[in-house]
Protein backbone atom coordinates (compact mmCIF):
# COMPACT_ATOMS: atom_id res chain seq x y z
CA UNK A 1 0.00 0.00 0.00
CA UNK A 2 1.36 3.35 -0.94
CA UNK A 3 1.27 5.91 1.75
CA UNK A 4 -0.11 9.21 0.59
CA UNK A 5 1.61 12.08 2.24
CA UNK A 6 0.31 15.60 2.33
CA UNK A 7 2.59 17.67 0.12
CA UNK A 8 4.71 19.90 2.27
CA UNK A 9 3.87 23.55 2.34
CA UNK A 10 5.98 25.65 0.09
CA UNK A 11 8.25 27.90 2.06
CA UNK A 12 7.28 31.37 1.00
CA UNK A 13 10.13 33.58 2.15
CA UNK A 14 9.30 36.12 -0.51
CA UNK A 15 5.75 36.41 0.68
CA UNK A 16 6.59 36.83 4.34
CA UNK A 17 9.23 39.47 3.63
CA UNK A 18 6.69 41.32 1.49
CA UNK A 19 4.15 41.12 4.31
CA UNK A 20 6.68 42.45 6.79
CA UNK A 21 7.62 45.36 4.51
CA UNK A 22 3.99 46.25 3.84
CA UNK A 23 3.18 45.99 7.54
CA UNK A 24 6.13 48.19 8.47
CA UNK A 25 5.17 50.85 5.92
CA UNK A 26 1.54 50.91 7.07
CA UNK A 27 2.43 51.03 10.76
CA UNK A 28 5.04 53.69 10.03
CA UNK A 29 2.44 55.79 8.22
CA UNK A 30 -0.08 55.46 11.04
CA UNK A 31 2.50 56.27 13.67
CA UNK A 32 4.05 59.26 11.93
CA UNK A 33 1.03 61.01 10.42
CA UNK A 34 -0.02 64.20 12.11
CA UNK A 35 -3.62 63.31 12.88
CA UNK A 36 -5.59 63.71 16.05
CA UNK A 37 -7.16 60.24 16.06
CA UNK A 38 -9.24 61.20 19.09
CA UNK A 39 -11.40 63.23 16.74
CA UNK A 40 -12.53 59.96 15.18
CA UNK A 41 -14.42 59.18 18.37
CA UNK A 42 -17.04 61.85 17.82
CA UNK A 43 -17.11 61.37 14.04
CA UNK A 44 -20.25 59.16 14.02
CA UNK A 45 -22.16 61.74 16.03
CA UNK A 46 -20.88 64.51 13.75
CA UNK A 47 -21.86 62.58 10.63
CA UNK A 48 -25.37 61.98 11.95
CA UNK A 49 -25.66 65.63 12.92
CA UNK A 50 -24.62 66.86 9.47
CA UNK A 51 -26.67 64.25 7.62
CA UNK A 52 -29.64 65.51 9.65
CA UNK A 53 -28.83 69.13 8.70
CA UNK A 54 -28.48 68.18 5.05
CA UNK A 55 -31.40 65.85 4.50
CA UNK A 56 -34.02 66.53 7.17
CA UNK A 57 -35.37 69.60 5.43
CA UNK A 58 -33.82 69.87 1.96
CA UNK A 59 -34.10 73.23 0.29
CA UNK A 60 -35.94 72.05 -2.82
CA UNK A 61 -36.24 75.55 -4.25
CA UNK A 62 -32.60 75.27 -5.39
CA UNK A 63 -33.30 72.25 -7.60
CA UNK A 64 -33.77 74.18 -10.89
CA UNK A 65 -30.50 76.09 -10.42
CA UNK A 66 -28.73 72.88 -9.40
CA UNK A 67 -29.99 71.12 -12.53
CA UNK A 68 -28.82 74.01 -14.69
CA UNK A 69 -25.35 73.91 -13.16
CA UNK A 70 -25.24 70.12 -13.45
CA UNK A 71 -26.07 70.43 -17.12
CA UNK A 72 -23.14 72.81 -17.44
CA UNK A 73 -20.86 70.24 -15.77
CA UNK A 74 -22.14 67.47 -18.02
CA UNK A 75 -21.66 69.69 -21.08
CA UNK A 76 -18.09 70.33 -19.92
CA UNK A 77 -17.56 66.58 -19.60
CA UNK A 78 -19.06 65.94 -23.02
CA UNK A 79 -16.96 68.55 -24.82
CA UNK A 80 -13.86 67.33 -22.97
CA UNK A 81 -14.57 63.75 -24.00
CA UNK A 82 -15.19 64.65 -27.65
CA UNK A 83 -11.99 66.69 -27.92
CA UNK A 84 -10.14 63.94 -26.07
CA UNK A 85 -11.41 61.33 -28.53
CA UNK A 86 -10.45 63.44 -31.55
CA UNK A 87 -6.92 63.96 -30.19
CA UNK A 88 -6.31 60.49 -28.78
CA UNK A 89 -7.59 58.48 -31.74
CA UNK A 90 -4.71 59.25 -34.13
CA UNK A 91 -2.21 59.34 -31.25
CA UNK A 92 -3.33 55.86 -30.19
CA UNK A 93 -2.33 54.50 -33.58
CA UNK A 94 1.01 56.27 -33.32
CA UNK A 95 1.62 54.44 -30.05
CA UNK A 96 0.64 50.97 -31.31
CA UNK A 97 3.21 48.34 -32.21
CA UNK A 98 3.31 47.72 -35.95
CA UNK A 99 1.94 51.10 -36.99
CA UNK A 100 4.75 53.47 -36.14
CA UNK A 101 8.51 53.40 -35.53
CA UNK A 102 9.75 52.65 -32.02
CA UNK A 103 10.94 56.18 -31.06
CA UNK A 104 7.55 57.71 -31.93
CA UNK A 105 5.79 54.86 -30.17
CA UNK A 106 7.74 55.23 -26.95
CA UNK A 107 7.51 59.00 -26.82
CA UNK A 108 3.73 58.70 -27.24
CA UNK A 109 3.53 56.17 -24.42
CA UNK A 110 5.62 58.26 -22.08
CA UNK A 111 3.43 61.25 -22.92
CA UNK A 112 0.26 59.31 -22.07
CA UNK A 113 1.83 58.09 -18.81
CA UNK A 114 2.78 61.63 -17.78
CA UNK A 115 -0.73 62.91 -18.45
CA UNK A 116 -2.25 60.03 -16.52
CA UNK A 117 -0.10 60.80 -13.51
CA UNK A 118 -1.32 64.41 -13.22
CA UNK A 119 -4.81 65.00 -11.77
CA UNK A 120 -7.19 66.93 -14.05
CA UNK A 121 -7.62 69.68 -11.52
CA UNK A 122 -3.87 70.43 -11.70
CA UNK A 123 -4.05 70.45 -15.49
CA UNK A 124 -6.89 72.96 -15.17
CA UNK A 125 -4.82 75.14 -12.82
CA UNK A 126 -1.90 75.00 -15.24
CA UNK A 127 -3.90 76.10 -18.28
CA UNK A 128 -6.21 78.62 -16.67
CA UNK A 129 -3.71 81.44 -17.02
CA UNK A 130 -4.39 81.24 -20.75
CA UNK A 131 -8.02 80.19 -20.86
CA UNK A 132 -9.34 82.02 -17.81
CA UNK A 133 -11.88 80.81 -15.25
CA UNK A 134 -14.46 79.55 -17.72
CA UNK A 135 -16.14 76.21 -18.35
CA UNK A 136 -13.93 76.02 -21.43
CA UNK A 137 -10.91 75.59 -19.14
CA UNK A 138 -12.66 72.67 -17.48
CA UNK A 139 -13.47 71.08 -20.82
CA UNK A 140 -9.90 71.48 -22.09
CA UNK A 141 -8.44 70.07 -18.86
CA UNK A 142 -10.74 67.07 -19.14
CA UNK A 143 -9.76 66.71 -22.80
CA UNK A 144 -6.07 66.64 -21.98
CA UNK A 145 -6.70 64.23 -19.10
CA UNK A 146 -8.75 62.00 -21.41
CA UNK A 147 -5.93 61.80 -23.93
CA UNK A 148 -3.77 60.05 -21.33
CA UNK A 149 -6.20 57.20 -20.66
CA UNK A 150 -7.86 57.00 -24.08
CA UNK A 151 -4.47 56.90 -25.80
CA UNK A 152 -3.33 54.03 -23.60
CA UNK A 153 -6.52 52.02 -23.95
CA UNK A 154 -6.47 52.81 -27.67
CA UNK A 155 -3.08 51.33 -28.43
CA UNK A 156 -3.83 48.36 -26.19
CA UNK A 157 -7.02 47.71 -28.14
CA UNK A 158 -5.24 48.09 -31.49
CA UNK A 159 -2.49 45.71 -30.44
CA UNK A 160 -5.07 43.24 -29.18
CA UNK A 161 -6.76 43.00 -32.57
CA UNK A 162 -6.63 39.61 -34.28
CA UNK A 163 -3.76 39.88 -36.80
CA UNK A 164 -5.58 37.78 -39.45
CA UNK A 165 -7.62 40.55 -41.10
CA UNK A 166 -4.60 42.91 -40.94
CA UNK A 167 -2.42 40.41 -42.79
CA UNK A 168 -5.22 39.74 -45.27
CA UNK A 169 -5.56 43.45 -46.04
CA UNK A 170 -1.80 43.79 -46.39
CA UNK A 171 -1.62 40.70 -48.60
CA UNK A 172 -4.24 42.10 -50.94
CA UNK A 173 -2.22 45.28 -51.31
CA UNK A 174 -3.75 47.63 -48.76
CA UNK A 175 -1.76 50.66 -47.64
CA UNK A 176 -1.58 51.75 -43.99
CA UNK A 177 -4.86 53.71 -44.11
CA UNK A 178 -6.67 50.79 -45.71
CA UNK A 179 -5.20 48.36 -43.18
CA UNK A 180 -6.51 50.57 -40.39
CA UNK A 181 -9.93 50.88 -41.99
CA UNK A 182 -10.50 47.25 -42.96
CA UNK A 183 -8.11 45.25 -40.77
CA UNK A 184 -8.22 47.07 -37.45
CA UNK A 185 -11.32 49.24 -37.24
CA UNK A 186 -14.04 46.54 -37.62
CA UNK A 187 -12.75 44.44 -34.73
CA UNK A 188 -11.57 47.31 -32.51
CA UNK A 189 -14.78 49.40 -32.75
CA UNK A 190 -16.62 47.81 -29.81
CA UNK A 191 -13.60 48.31 -27.57
CA UNK A 192 -13.16 51.92 -28.66
CA UNK A 193 -16.79 52.94 -28.25
CA UNK A 194 -16.96 51.14 -24.93
CA UNK A 195 -13.99 52.92 -23.41
CA UNK A 196 -14.99 56.28 -24.90
CA UNK A 197 -18.27 55.96 -23.03
CA UNK A 198 -16.46 54.83 -19.90
CA UNK A 199 -14.20 57.87 -20.08
CA UNK A 200 -17.28 60.06 -20.44
CA UNK A 201 -18.57 58.59 -17.16
CA UNK A 202 -15.24 59.41 -15.51
CA UNK A 203 -15.32 62.93 -16.94
CA UNK A 204 -18.82 63.54 -15.58
CA UNK A 205 -17.49 62.82 -12.09
CA UNK A 206 -14.36 64.92 -12.62
CA UNK A 207 -16.30 67.85 -14.03
CA UNK A 208 -18.23 68.08 -10.77
CA UNK A 209 -14.90 68.36 -8.98
CA UNK A 210 -13.36 70.92 -11.34
CA UNK A 211 -15.85 73.48 -10.08
CA UNK A 212 -13.77 73.69 -6.91
CA UNK A 213 -11.26 75.94 -8.63
CA UNK A 214 -14.03 78.08 -10.02
CA UNK A 215 -14.51 77.01 -13.62
CA UNK A 216 -18.26 76.75 -13.11
CA UNK A 217 -20.80 73.97 -12.97
CA UNK A 218 -22.19 72.07 -10.02
CA UNK A 219 -18.80 71.94 -8.26
CA UNK A 220 -18.75 75.74 -8.02
CA UNK A 221 -22.19 75.78 -6.47
CA UNK A 222 -21.33 72.96 -4.04
CA UNK A 223 -18.15 74.67 -2.87
CA UNK A 224 -19.82 77.98 -2.23
CA UNK A 225 -22.80 76.53 -0.36
CA UNK A 226 -20.46 74.33 1.72
CA UNK A 227 -18.46 77.43 2.59
CA UNK A 228 -21.64 79.32 3.53
CA UNK A 229 -22.56 76.21 5.58
CA UNK A 230 -26.02 76.18 4.04
CA UNK A 231 -26.44 72.50 4.63
CA UNK A 232 -30.03 72.16 3.48
CA UNK A 233 -28.92 73.33 0.04
CA UNK A 234 -25.79 71.17 0.08
CA UNK A 235 -28.02 68.15 0.73
CA UNK A 236 -30.11 68.95 -2.35
CA UNK A 237 -26.98 69.43 -4.47
CA UNK A 238 -25.60 66.06 -3.34
CA UNK A 239 -28.87 64.36 -4.18
CA UNK A 240 -28.81 65.95 -7.65
CA UNK A 241 -25.18 64.94 -8.26
CA UNK A 242 -25.79 61.35 -7.14
CA UNK A 243 -28.93 60.92 -9.24
CA UNK A 244 -27.43 62.50 -12.37
CA UNK A 245 -24.16 60.54 -12.12
CA UNK A 246 -25.95 57.27 -11.50
CA UNK A 247 -28.39 57.99 -14.35
CA UNK A 248 -25.59 58.73 -16.82
CA UNK A 249 -23.68 55.65 -15.64
CA UNK A 250 -26.77 53.51 -16.14
CA UNK A 251 -27.42 54.79 -19.68
CA UNK A 252 -23.81 54.57 -20.74
CA UNK A 253 -23.44 51.16 -19.09
CA UNK A 254 -26.47 49.84 -20.98
CA UNK A 255 -25.08 51.11 -24.30
CA UNK A 256 -21.67 49.61 -23.54
CA UNK A 257 -23.18 46.24 -22.67
CA UNK A 258 -25.14 46.20 -25.94
CA UNK A 259 -22.06 47.11 -27.97
CA UNK A 260 -19.80 44.58 -26.28
CA UNK A 261 -22.38 41.83 -26.62
CA UNK A 262 -22.61 42.77 -30.31
CA UNK A 263 -26.27 43.46 -30.90
Amino acid sequence: MTVLTIPSRRRAWGRSTAMIIVGAVVIGAFWSVDVNWARLADLPAQVMHYLWLMFSDPNWSKVPEALGQTWKSVAMAWVGTVIGILLSFPLGFLAARGFSPAPVRWSMRVGFAIIRAVPEIIIAIAILSVTGLTPLTGALALAIGSVGTLGKWGYEAIEGVDPGPIEATRASGGNIAQILRWGVWPSATPDFISFWLYRFEINVRSSAVLGLIGVGGIGDMLTSYTQFREWSTVGVLIIVVVIVTMGIDAISGAIRRRIVEGT
Partner: peptide, 24 residues
Protein backbone atom coordinates in the same frame (compact mmCIF):
# COMPACT_ATOMS: atom_id res chain seq x y z
CA UNK B 1 -23.45 52.56 -5.60
CA UNK B 2 -24.40 55.77 -3.84
CA UNK B 3 -20.97 56.02 -2.19
CA UNK B 4 -19.25 55.53 -5.55
CA UNK B 5 -21.20 58.24 -7.32
CA UNK B 6 -19.86 61.04 -5.11
CA UNK B 7 -16.39 62.25 -6.13
CA UNK B 8 -13.62 62.08 -3.51
CA UNK B 9 -13.08 65.84 -3.44
CA UNK B 10 -16.71 66.44 -2.52
CA UNK B 11 -16.40 64.03 0.39
CA UNK B 12 -13.29 65.88 1.44
CA UNK B 13 -15.00 69.28 1.18
CA UNK B 14 -17.88 68.15 3.38
CA UNK B 15 -15.69 66.22 5.83
CA UNK B 16 -13.45 69.24 6.31
CA UNK B 17 -16.54 71.06 7.54
CA UNK B 18 -17.36 68.15 9.87
CA UNK B 19 -14.02 67.25 11.48
CA UNK B 20 -11.90 70.30 10.68
CA UNK B 21 -8.93 70.79 8.37
CA UNK B 22 -6.00 68.37 8.26
CA UNK B 23 -5.16 64.91 7.06
CA UNK B 24 -8.08 63.18 8.81
Amino acid sequence: NVIRSIPDLLYAAILVAMVGVGAL
